[in-house]
Write a protein that binds this DNA or RNA. Sequence first.
DNA 1: CCTACCGATCGGTAGG
DNA 2: CCTACCGATCGGTAGG
Lengths: 234, 234
Amino acid sequence: MVGRKPERKSAPPTDVRAHVLASATRLFAARGFDGTSLQAIADEVGVAKPSVLHHFPSKEALRASVLDNMLAHWSEALPRLLLAATAGEGRFDALVGELISFFAADTDRAKLLVREAMDRPDEVRLLLTAQVRPWQTAISEYIRKGQRHDEHFADVDAEAYVLHVINLVIAGLAVFDTFRVLLPDASVAESRARYVTEIIRIAKSSLFAGPALSAEPRDPSLEGAPNRRNGTTR
Amino acid sequence: MVGRKPERKSAPPTDVRAHVLASATRLFAARGFDGTSLQAIADEVGVAKPSVLHHFPSKEALRASVLDNMLAHWSEALPRLLLAATAGEGRFDALVGELISFFAADTDRAKLLVREAMDRPDEVRLLLTAQVRPWQTAISEYIRKGQRHDEHFADVDAEAYVLHVINLVIAGLAVFDTFRVLLPDASVAESRARYVTEIIRIAKSSLFAGPALSAEPRDPSLEGAPNRRNGTTR
DNA sequence: CCTACCGATCGGTAGG
DNA sequence: CCTACCGATCGGTAGG
């Protein structure tokens, strides 16, 4: 009945498609797919609803594009991750660190993945099998090699371990905005630093056998790595 | 326009309120609050939509009741958990084991909590502060005591550690139905056993210092506990 | 990129 | 517990 206000946004009036994609990503992550109307997206971008459907044939297509877009960013980050995984000493730290960096850079990525896992299990199962399983297998074999050399705990279930580390990072960052009330530091950045540092510590100390970590530091050269031990006793 | 089929269900025709609550719990967990219509709930129960709204004044009230109902079950499980936490040797195993039991008994509980954390951060923040923070504080103090006796790693961030264990259990079980494709065991029960056993192992071995776990078992009496080490080398 | 509009479905109400 | 119905909003289309 009532006409919608044109309401120009601060962003350039061109590039509507990219703007729609960005708004949809934010809103799907925050409220979920079913909790987000095309009208809400159109309002944020500052266009009429049919304009959204000009760039994406349907709401379902928009959802697929949002996911594709995130996976494209992941492919972009892959080379850095591969490089980290092959570096000498701090391989493990660097690998987990890169994983965390990707999802910490934009927690919408983590939220979208967790929502998809719950809303569209079949779709995500296919995605996991195609995109994650090769990594899981490779890392698991690396872990078993370490187990034969007594570097890793003998009772680690390699495949399950990899899953739980992935879950720690992704689900952990997906709910961080909510859970951070239980880490009431001075700044959000500070509590997030604590949060991710502890993820890395848990992942590492539940894998590496050898001398107790608190007794003798394994390698002083790791101190400069993005994830340092700082013995928080609070 | 068209009339809805009455379509009796196998469950007794009385007890409609409980039936609505059960259906709503299942559907909210599986499809989310916004993805579930009152009509879908009514259809499952086998009543007309207004009958649902006779038992619950609004959809929002139904959501609150679903959450309340779950928290009531939690309160029911608390005594067993408290008992486990004060038992002698296997305290830690028993505590984490009870936490897992509660959410493994019905993964809808985990899914609902994860969905609420993402959909209603403010509400869940209040819930965390009131219901979880006291536990987090108590367990953190216990951990710091252990740290002073060199039983626990010195670099554990107690508060963050507790959060991550909670996240491992709850988010882990919330996405298990989807993630289990990456643990392709003979039966679902088998892969879930592997999955939760590894959660307990990660939680434990990232906390307890002392002799390497794979070297000398801490206490043979733990073997009978619901969570046993079985050195999965696959 | 817009206005104008479609049928379907949403949560909820009236009234019995 | 039902039928009948409400206004609002949903995703999507027509047509320019």
